[in-house]
């Protein structure tokens, strides 16, 4: 073992075939510095094949768009009782007498809660459709075996977790403007709204990555994820819905600390359990 001699030669078949002793990979060459390189290799590989095939992002974006449009068509989120109110009694009589408009615009608590729930339901179903793809793709294409053979489980998990977090953040950044456009939510506190939306997306990706690995090994890859995700992800949805509703109405109701702690907890548990799901 002569680590210093490892250069281009390592990859040449000639040296591999040479009868005399050949420098071999030193056993110590897989330190923690190499772990990050492995994680980043997995992440970049997934990103590259995603950009080339657009299998996950395209699907979930279409899914989210369809859901947003469908809800915009079918669920009344504007109008009397939701965005417009009749002036209160005394003011109403004055307005009638003076010939002024009797309606005024103001968000109601119901509308805040409704819009905020719509957002998270769309995000949940889009995420459950798209996030397992990183693992389902490997199993369906049959590439999982070679990945198992060559890559440490922890590097596979972390790389794919990063990829899913990035993918869900991209999705979030694409659907928030659409949401604002279609529903006119009249958010009072945008930083708080975006804070919940971004941290919530990260938390969903954190808990859903391991479940995606689990689902990819079952016979029901297509729809099991929506069912499995519900219980473990509901706390995120409830915290998110409450937080964004508060941000829309301008009330104080900051659930970011709760979201972050649940995110950290679920990601740690996922990371611990992952190799039991992944390794044959």
């Amino acid at each position: 073992m002569i680590p210093a001699k490892r250069g281009t030669e390592t990859f040449s078949l000639n040296s591999a075939l040479r009868p005399d002793g050949v420098p071999a990979a030193g056993p110590g060459s897989r330190g923690s510095d190499s772990w990050w390189a492995e994680v980043s290799a997995v992440f970049r590989k997934d990103l590259r094949s995603e950009l080339r095939t657009r299998s996950a992002v395209g699907t979930i974006l279409m899914f989210a768009l369809t859901a947003l449009v469908l809800i915009a068509f079918t669920v009344p989120t504007t109008g009397l009782g939701l965005t417009t109110k009749i002036l209160p009694d005394g003011a109403l009589q004055d307005a009638v007498r003076l010939g002024k408009p009797v309606l005024f615009t103001e968000n109601t608590e119901t509308r805040d809660a409704l819009l905020s729930s719509l957002y998270w339901v769309v995000l949940y179903f889009s995420a459950m459709t798209g996030l397992p793809r990183v693992f389902v793709k490997e199993e369906e294409m049959g590439t999982a075996a070679l990945l198992r053979l060559t890559t440490r489980p922890s590097a596979v998990f972390t790389g794919k977790l990063l990829f899913n977090v990035v993918m869900l953040l991209v999705l979030t950044l694409l659907i928030v403007p659409l949401f604002a456009l279609f529903y006119d939510p009249q958010v009072r506190d945008w930083p708080l709204f975006l804070g919940h939306v971004i941290v919530g997306a990260g938390a969903i990706a954190g808990a859903a990555t391991m479940l995606g690995a689990l689902v990819s090994r079952t016979n029901n890859r297509g729809y099991l994820m929506v069912v499995l995700g519900f219980g473990p992800l509901l706390p995120i949805l409830i915290l998110g819905i409450n937080g964004t509703a508060a941000a829309i109405s301008g009330d104080n109701g900051n659930n970011l600390a709760g979201l972050v702690s649940y995110w950290v907890m679920m990601t740690l548990v996922s990371g611990l359990l992952f190799d039991r799901v992944w390794v044959e």
């Binding site: 250069g7 390592t10 060559t150």
Partner: peptide, 9 residues
């Protein structure tokens, strides 16, 4: 990819 995940140069 396989070189990197195996920690090879």
């Amino acid at each position: 990819f396989f070189a990197r995940v195996r920690g090879l140069p």
